[in-house]
Design a protein around this nucleic acid. Structure first.
Lengths: 211, 211, 211, 211
DNA sequence: TATGAATGAGTATTCATTCAT
DNA sequence: AATGAATGAATACTCATTCAT
């Protein structure tokens, strides 16, 4: 017969989701230690024992959030892997759309983003994994002549991760820039560099210069 | 035969310095909350009350470390400000030496670096300040024709901070790269971009193209 | 078969009251600083965290007791204010019954009395307030001719407070005298003084000596 | 060659006296527990070890102050014992001068007074002793016909102590009344009572009402 | 599904006091 | 006569977690 007087119509799974989202916000803004179980349940109008009905521990809940972020980010980057044969879009566009996807995800889940990139101890692992994937992509492209060969692609990849992280926090999440614009700016910068070139204005590079 | 291992002979200022350095290591590796006063003093072979002889609180000690980092970093970046008239060294060299100085500082004080860049709540402030200074420099150079005008220098500055942060943690502190090499790689990347240009190989750019 | 000795069954409000009364006894006998939270909860067969379930701090609990005393005492003295028109009872009787009420309260709550009169920092405030009320009463009576006019009623009121305090501790609480007897003795002394008068034996004074 | 660079010309006994007087002030105003050894020595421009050069413990110093008060007060009251044969002064005057002496002592040593009457645990003992002496005097006088016989002189004595204590704190030490005035008011009140008598104005009672 | 009541285990901090000089 | 440096012993308070209902 459905929900009754129980709680606020909470169907269990609903309480769980509520706790999860409140916790995400708290963790994102105050960190792990300053986020108290008592505070989370209070905001959810639930009691502390109820918390343990759905999560084994505060740490477990936190880990769940981190995993959520890590998994989704991984899915995202997996998709943006280069499909070797397909050259339908230009290199710049492909890189840009990968970044855009990541930034969009961050905008959709800002709390998760902060947690997985800043708060969690595993943030390092997550970024390392991201860097590794980016590096793979870059090396592939480098080997196909898109990039100069005197670049250490591991360093470049880590740089990109650093940029993603920093711009996400300073430009994206505060709402100063959109995912698209940010992605485009990064691509422009990375591909062309900062100095004034003769005719390097187009976003869709001729790529594969000459041959 | 003078003071030896005995705490009693310790010069006070020595005990303080000892606590400070042990604390820095602990904070850097375990974070603020997982660093216990009891653990710090144990490693210093001192008692807990002695801790409070030199610091008002665990938080105060932590703050001192953060301030130390922030001040030194600020001094460093202040020095690397551009001296308008002096064009003795090339742009690339100047930027590179600024980065090198920062990286060297990080290598000298890896614990402070981790604390001030990662652990502290004020890390954000510190990075913002650094970004602001970099941005000022970049804009100055941009206005003098060194850089393209279609770049948002705030974004570029933030990107640089993100890169510094990330490469410091993944390449520098683990010992994979030296400050000099890292700085040079960043400069190359940022100035030239990734794509293969015709004749963009020299590190010391002719700058100020044309005229 | 319902709740029994188990803490678990305790009604919460019961635990709170228990802590309150144990604390009152401890504070009254050992003072604020020598009363340890650990000792209070031990006597209540509760744990220290439970203490903080009901009180924000040791000081807060203490303050609650002081307030309890102050409020009840204030209520008591308010009631004993003179009802101008009503002269049903003699002056002596009225004063006496006021004192009796106070002393009865002290007998009922000896711990609160010690705390609010001796232990608390606010004891001075409480006594000042009491003195002020007594003074008001006395002045009213003085203006209506009951008392000599060459008496500083503020001094008299303070004296009464001093007497109440001292006799409560030395005669009343040890059980040497009843509230009634003590009150009557005070009234006799204060109204007649100590020296032998001709015909000053009656307790119910004719008051308002003739015209 | 006398005092030299040592301290501030402190001759040991001077340091001791200094600590004693600073401690008295602190204890009187902040109580035993809120008075810290560290605070006392700081005000004396001495170090903590020096404190223990002169006193075995904080408690010992406190005890010394209490004893000082108790002894002086005892001396004072001993003197005011009635000299049976000597009836040179009137009863009122004799009582009054006893009270005056006490109040003068309080004015001279306000810190000791607060400590010995309010702060110390032994305050009760001291007051009891004072009450006992007063009671002895009163009984002697009562037996010689000066006072009514239906007064419990123990109660009267305790009342006097309560009054002394209270008026000392509220009228004397704040400077509102002089020892002489206060003593005279108490005597007037106690001997005559509050109600308007026919001819009870003189301070020097005829005493020993004929018969 | 939910909670009122309770707690184990910790953790920073304080302060009187002492040692070696 | 005096102190710089150090500490033993305590104590209030916190928080994640659990039991019985």
């Amino acid at each position: 017969m459905g929900r009754r007087g129980r709680k606020k119509g909470a169907s269990g799974e609903q309480s769980r989701a509520l706790l999860l989202s409140i916790a995400a916000k708290e963790f994102a803004h105050k960190g792990f230690y300053e986020t108290k179980v008592s505070s989370i349940v209070k905001q959810a109008s639930l009691s502390q024992p109820t918390f343990y009905l759905y999560f084994n521990s505060k740490e477990a809940l936190f880990g769940e959030l981190v995993e959520l972020f890590g998994d989704q980010l991984f899915d995202l980057t997996k998709q943006s892997r280069l499909e070797p044969g397909i050259e339908s879009s230009s290199l710049a566009n492909r890189i840009s759309s990968g970044l855009t996807a990541i930034f969009r995800f961050f905008v959709e889940e800002p709390d998760l983003a902060r947690i997985g990139f800043y708060i969690a101890d595993e943030a390092e692992d997550i970024k390392n994994k991201l860097a590794a994937q980016i590096k793979d992509n870059l090396i592939y492209e480098q080997q196909h002549g898109y990039f100069r060969t005197n670049l250490d692609m591991s360093t470049v990849a880590e740089s990109l991760v650093g940029i993603i992280e920093r711009l996400a926090m300073t430009k994206l999440l505060p709402g100063h820039k959109t995912p698209e614009i940010l992605a485009s700016e990064i691509v422009t910068l990375f591909l062309n560099g900062m100095i004034t070139h003769q005719g390097s204005s187009s976003l869709s590079y001729p790529s594969r210069i000459s041959e």
